[in-house]
Write a protein that binds this DNA or RNA. Structure first.
Length: 294
RNA sequence: GGAGAGGUAGCGAAGUGGCUAAACGCGGCUGACUGUAAAUCAGCUCUCUACGAGUUCGACAGUUCGAAUCUGCCCCUCUCCA
């Protein structure tokens, strides 16, 4: 089985640096497992590796999409697997580094996504209750995992049924839920207190690095806050600032808080959805990688 | 020194005699997750030996069958006038 090193962890723990170190030490190349860093022009707010870092190791799946384009798990799954194959063929170690849990899991595991041409129908004229009742007839099993208030999921499940005549629960049931690769999933961790502090510091640094100017420049290029790329933390919070409804300081605080919440959600996903070996110490993490490679 | 306003759970803020362990927001914690996932959604958040019990709404003393809500006194904060 093809070996794949996976480095995950909450935002701002230090995945980028550790990934580069591993790439250099173990003859590897990095595949970014991140849903925002794939966008061109979203550099500072997405904490994309800088020029210097990019030069230290080969990176894939960064800057491959324009800021007004959409992107999804399915594309990531396909691209990431292609990258793994390509890196393998060069005799190198593929290293996935990122914090987007679903993307990484979908690439690693036997998730199946069908071909989809058309956009999802939004069912804007239906209430949540109506959507719920509708899904109850078509794919009742899916309801076990979808709360009635989660409109997005309700809509998605209905769209899947309408497009493919199969319930999402059936598609899942056909999968074996196992990894396609021989993975070591290293989770970088820190105490909550320390992590939140690092987040705050990093956000302040982003501002100093010109985050506000980056947003302004994107807007000037025609990117809007409705674009998918701008849904990311560090970006969406500025909408009200540019509308004159919020101060810079308020936006910064909001970004910090959203990042804390995000970090928490990342932990929850990683802990419960992936088989992670956690480390508070990077040296120990590296030793574990060595052990696994031999 | 004088005149007002106010002190409610980690914070902000409702409540102004029983339906109040106390709305709501924030923060915190936990969880769900198969095509927007840095998204979307759910639960918990006074204490405990926890399908029950105990202690709360600045402090103390009262009124009352019953008080965060009424009375007295005390402490503290803020604004204004001296």
């Amino acid at each position: 089985m093809q070996k794949v090193l996976v480095i995950i962890g909450p935002t701002a723990v230090g995945k980028t640096a550790f990934g580069i170190e591993c790439a250099r030490s173990f003859h590897g190349e990095i595949i970014s497992g991140d849903s925002i860093q794939i966008y061109r022009g979203l550099d500072i707010g997405s904490a994309k590796p800088n020029e210097e870092e990019l030069a230290m190791a080969k990176h894939h799946l960064i800057d491959i999409i324009g800021p007004k384009e959409n992107y999804s798990v399915r594309q990531f799954q396909q691209y990431a697997r292609e990258c793994i194959e390509q890196i393998r063929s060069e005799g190198k170690l593929p290293i996935i580094v990122g914090g987007t849990g679903l993307y990484i899991k979908a690439a690693l595991y036997d998730y199946v996504f069908y071909e989809e041409e058309e956009e999802d129908e939004l069912f804007e004229d239906l209430s949540n209750q109506e959507l719920y009742d509708c899904l109850k007839e078509k794919d009742p099993a899916a309801l076990e995992k979808i709360h009635i208030n989660n409109r997005k999921r309700l809509v998605r499940a209905l769209n899947i049924y309408n497009k493919h005549q199969t319930g999402i629960s059936q598609i899942k049931a056909q999968q074996q839920h196992r990894s396609l690769y021989d993975c070591l999933i290293v989770g970088l961790s820190a105490t909550r207190e320390e992590l939140y502090q690092r987040i705050d510091q990093r956000v302040d640094q982003m501002i100093r690095n010109g985050l506000v100017e980056e947003i302004a420049s994107l807007l000037k290029q025609g990117v809007t806050f409705d674009d998918q790329s701008m849904q990311g933390i560090g970006y969406k919070e500025w909408k009200e600032y540019f509308e004159g409804k919020k101060s810079k300081e308020e936006c910064i605080d909001q970004i910090k808080r959203n990042s804390w919440h995000f970090a928490k959600r990342q932990y929850t996903f990683f802990k419960n959805q992936l088989d992670v070996k956690w480390f508070f110490d990077v040296k120990e993490a590296k030793q574990e990688v060595e052990k696994w490679l031999n």
